[in-house]
Amino acid sequence: MNVQTSTWATKKGLAQMLKGGVIMDVVTPEHARVAEDAGAVAVMALERVPSDIRAAGGVARMSDPSMIQGIMDAVTIPVMAKARIGHFVEAQVLEALGVDYIDESEVLTPADETHHIDKHAFKVPFVCGCRDLGEALRRIAEGAAMIRTKGEAGTGNIVEAVRHTRALQSGIRALQGKRSDELFTAAKELQAPYELVREVAETGKLPVVNFVAGGIATPADAALAMQLGAEGVFVGSGIFKSEDPARTANAIVQATTHFDDAQVIAEVSKGLGAPMRGIELGAIPEAERLAVRGW
């Protein structure tokens, strides 16, 4: 019968299967196995976790394909990998490798200061970052099948993730309160396509799955993101920069499932050892902020 691959339903559908879960940054096959054993729903394969990218400075690019391949061979859960904003050839390479999702990510140095990748042109689905509703809808218009709020990657500081998630959610609520004849101007103000604006106003949610990323370091951070309306979480440096990665990873998985049960969060948070050392946002010069990348 009529078999269709790489449809919108399958692209968006994989993100639906990841909901309620934790996607973990990993830099080696060993990390990937630790993440899988801890209950990660997917891993993000990259050469350095964001806090190391931040420390190293310079231009951050797509990871070595052999490193990504090694991680794909090590685990059975989905493997994601990052391409630079606007770098559609890095995305083509990742698609050729057969990764399960591409993150067009502000954590890497942007390759294009005006245009994002035309993600409709790809068979592999994309996840993109956003700071508010308008940015989310622009990415979805370009073909993103999953959205994550950006936060400020590599800081272990949840404050930006909270800011972006609240901005996104309150943007959605504001649309729901509008009359239909007000949505045209709302679309103009959001700099987003009217059809998507109207859909969000009608349904009260994004048309794709929405995770939180950037700064999650503890089980309570993950549960905070979930209670604020996230459908799952990305944890980057927060796991492998902690004192006990396996236990921290497992505890964050448990807290994401039981995000509204404080008893469970308390139980899983006991005796985890030191979380990653965080960075106060004020200590990061504007030029080194990652979340402002993307337009």
């Binding site: 269709q4 691959t5 790489s6 449809t7 399958t10 989905p78 698609e95 399960d100 999702y101």
Partner: peptide, 10 residues
């Protein structure tokens, strides 16, 4: 296979 092999069918 992987995600690229996901599909829809009647």
């Amino acid at each position: 296979g992987r995600q690229l092999d996901s599909f829809e069918e009647d």
